[in-house]
Amino acid sequence: MSPVASLIAVEVAYPGRGTVLGPFDLALTEGEIVALVGSSGCGKSTALRLLAGLEQPTAGTVTRTPERGQTAVVFQAPTLMPWADARTNVALPLELAGMAKAKAHDQAQEALKAVGLEHAIGSKPAQLSGGMAMRVSLARALVTRPRLLLLDEPFAALDEITRRNLADDIHRLWDQTRPAVVFVTHNVEEAAYMAQRVVVMSANPGKIAGQTIIDAPLPRPLGFRTSEVFRNAAEDVSHDLAKAMGHVQ
């Protein structure tokens, strides 16, 4: 299958900080979930911004087939407009693309229903819990039916139970339209649970240190977290990470 987006020998350098990423290669095929794992500052968020087209590489090539509006990003914080209710927040990408307000709000309502928030349509961000706000953010990302979904440590600020519920929700929603997904995290278990392919990055500058394929169905079956496949995958990723950090030769 042709890649939905790819980074080919990209390098990113910032004045005063030198090269933070690369040379780095990553190709995403249609409907694939890839996790990027690495320590803070290894360039995983930079890689994500390149894929989103929010940043240009210093060297190398970025290819992207999705058109504008077909790429969605979920940030570490819910990044909602505090003055707008959930429905207005979710309708934003549609309205920015020129859709009439009534239609955009109808679709936003559907998207909120899909993330289990039909009761919070009129709530403002301050009235939502952290997990609920993240769901609104997810609904906003999915409302445009993106072909490329980029998740930048979306669980970072959430508690364990909320994380697990949200992980399963993301799989269920992904299954409806099967966009290509990049999931950035620094949590090994989370990566092994979320993705079909886990790419471990080393830092300074960010490069690929290892890759693990997880051959198990998505969405994950019940009890997957205690299965052998999951344990082995997490162990492999852990090993790659230790190598990336220079703890293992």
Partner: peptide, 23 residues
């Protein structure tokens, strides 16, 4: 990050002013 979101969805200057900066 909201600015990036407006970038991502190709917001015009007016949209950015009315829907993000003024609020």
């Amino acid at each position: 990050d909201l600015e990036r979101l407006f970038d991502l969805y190709g917001a015009t200057r007016w949209q950015r002013l009315l829907r993000l900066r003024i609020p």
